[in-house]
Amino acid sequence: MRYMLLIYNDEAAMANTPRDKVEQTLAAYGAYTEALKKSGAYLAGERLRPTQAATSIRLANGKTNVLDGPYADTKEQLAGFYMIEATDIDTAMEWGARCPAASTGTVEVRPIWEMTDYLS
């Protein structure tokens, strides 16, 4: 089964992090990504640009409303993701707990709802 590991961090805190700490964090993510790949669990993963680069779209009363920047003001913002293959939720949660973001922010582990499941 496929799972998304959604990574949430505080963008303001990350922006104020000293360069050497940023390099340590990037190295930790590199090692984590390599471990996922070696295990065969890795399917995809990317880092997202800050929420200031986001655009939110809503349809209301037949009108498209576009909002530049983040839609909601929250403590943590979606910073990136990994898509993994795991035999069950417990295995996916083990990978989520190993993600560097689990110690500085939040990793949401969510099963992917396969469209083939819906269409069957």
Rank of each mutant, 00 (worst) to 15 (best):
R19M: 13
R19G: 08
D20K: 12
K21T: 11
V22G: 09
V22D: 06
E23T: 06
L26W: 12
A27C: 08
A28R: 12
G30R: 09
A31Q: 13
T33A: 14
K37L: 09
K38M: 13
K38R: 15
G40N: 01
G40H: 07
G45I: 04
R47K: 11
R49F: 08
T51K: 11
A53M: 08
T55M: 00
T55K: 04
S56C: 08
I57T: 08
L59C: 14
N61S: 12
N61I: 08
N61C: 05
V66H: 02
L67Q: 11
L67T: 14
L67N: 10
D68A: 14
D68Y: 11
P70H: 15
P70C: 15
Y71V: 13
Y71C: 15
T74N: 02
K75L: 08
K75D: 03
E76Q: 10
E76D: 10
Q77R: 01
L78E: 05
A79H: 02
G80F: 09
F81K: 02
Y82W: 14
M83H: 03
I84A: 01
A86T: 00
A86Q: 01
A86K: 00
I89H: 14
D90V: 08
T91P: 04
T91A: 14
A92K: 03
A92R: 01
A92P: 05
M93C: 13
W95A: 03
W95T: 00
G96M: 04
G96Q: 04
A97W: 07
A97P: 06
A97R: 13
A97Q: 11
R98T: 06
R98F: 09
A101G: 02
S103L: 07
S103Y: 09
S103K: 14
T104S: 10
T104Y: 11
G105L: 00
V107C: 03
V107G: 00
V107K: 01
R110M: 06
P111A: 03
